[in-house]
């Protein structure tokens, strides 16, 4: 049944949610759209599934999908067209190779500090996850 429904929508992307990942559902949808943009599965003027299609497929609260689409708009990746739906607006701004290398270098320096302070790999991973969650929570609170 779920496969049939997937074919009814014209979406080229098969959206899915991992409820054990700890990543909020709306953010998982945002990440999957971004991933599809990176892979070229979605491009400018492609329509995202309607809220109704998405909630029927995933059995989630409509607010979650609306929040994901608002976040995509906020990131400049999609835009809502009244009465039509939500459409992809832009190609994903990719981080340049040089920029990525510079960021990785700073992260590596921090990780050496953390290891020197006595944190093991799992401790470092846990801390990165916790800080990332705090950041998201803080930005959620600010935008709500």
């Amino acid at each position: 049944m779920a496969i049939d429904k997937q074919q009814v929508t014209f979406s080229p992307v098969a959206y899915r949610l991992d409820h054990r990942s700890g990543v909020p559902s709306y953010l998982q949808l945002v990440q999957q759209v971004e991933q599809a943009l990176r892979l070229g599965l979605l491009g400018p003027d492609d329509q995202l599934p309607t809220v109704k299609e998405m909630v029927e497929l995933l059995a989630i609260n409509p607010n979650t999908v609306m929040k994901a689409y608002r976040e995509l708009e906020h990131r400049g990746l999609a835009s809502g067209r009244p009465g039509q739906g939500t459409f992809i607006k832009a190609k994903l701004q990719r981080v340049s190779g040089a920029e990525q290398a510079a960021l990785a270098q700073r992260l590596a320096a921090w990780m050496r500090d953390a290891a020197a302070a006595g944190l093991d790999d799992q401790g470092i991973t846990a801390m990165v996850g916790a800080v990332l969650r705090d950041l998201h929570q803080y930005s959620d609170g600010a935008s709500a």
């Binding site: 909630v55 059995a59 409509p62």
Partner: peptide, 11 residues
């Protein structure tokens, strides 16, 4: 499926 139908009606 039940919840999907329910949420579609809400949406």
């Amino acid at each position: 499926e039940f919840l999907g139908v329910l949420m579609a009606a809400v949406a």
